Amino acid sequence: MSNSIADPGHGHSPAAWAAVVIMLVGFALGTLFFCLHQPALVWASVVVIVIGPIVGWAMAKAGYGVNGPKYSPKAH
């Protein structure tokens, strides 16, 4: 495959990392609270999971996305 300018960068940006970490924390807490029979906290964890993509989108709009001005890719 060729490396073209249209390459989305595979999500290696602060915005993508923040979204994924927030959703992973929400999922882990939701699993824990489900095992502890705490339905209100399970639903609170669902809210945290929904907040993850919103934070990622907001960070991307603020310039921390793959093609944003505040993002600098690291050499591999």
Rank of each mutant, 00 (worst) to 15 (best):
S2D: 10
S2V: 07
N3R: 08
S4T: 12
S4Q: 10
A6K: 10
D7E: 06
P8N: 15
P8C: 11
G9H: 08
G9I: 04
H10Y: 12
G11E: 06
G11Y: 07
G11F: 08
H12K: 12
H12V: 11
P14Y: 09
P14E: 02
P14W: 02
P14S: 10
A15W: 00
A15Q: 00
A16H: 03
A16M: 02
A18T: 15
A18K: 04
A19C: 14
V20Y: 07
V20D: 00
V21W: 01
I22R: 01
V25W: 02
V25G: 04
G26D: 01
G26P: 05
G26S: 06
G26F: 02
F27E: 06
F27H: 09
F27A: 15
F27L: 14
A28E: 03
A28M: 08
A28I: 06
G30D: 06
G30Y: 00
T31H: 06
L32K: 06
F33M: 11
F33K: 01
F34P: 00
F34H: 10
F34I: 03
C35D: 01
C35N: 07
L36G: 02
Q38I: 03
Q38M: 11
L41S: 07
L41Y: 08
L41E: 08
V42S: 06
W43T: 15
A44W: 01
A44D: 04
S45Q: 02
V48W: 03
V48P: 03
I49A: 00
I49S: 00
V50G: 10
I51Q: 05
I51M: 12
I51H: 05
G52H: 05
G52L: 01
G52K: 02
P53E: 13
P53V: 14
I54C: 08
G56V: 04
G56P: 01
A58D: 14
A58N: 13
A58I: 12
M59Q: 09
A60K: 00
K61V: 13
K61D: 14
A62F: 09
G65K: 00
G65R: 00
V66L: 06
N67D: 09
N67H: 09
N67G: 14
K70T: 07
Y71T: 15
Y71S: 12
P73T: 07
P73A: 13
A75C: 03
A75S: 13
A75L: 09
A75D: 14
A75N: 13
H76Y: 09
H76T: 10
H76P: 05
H76F: 11
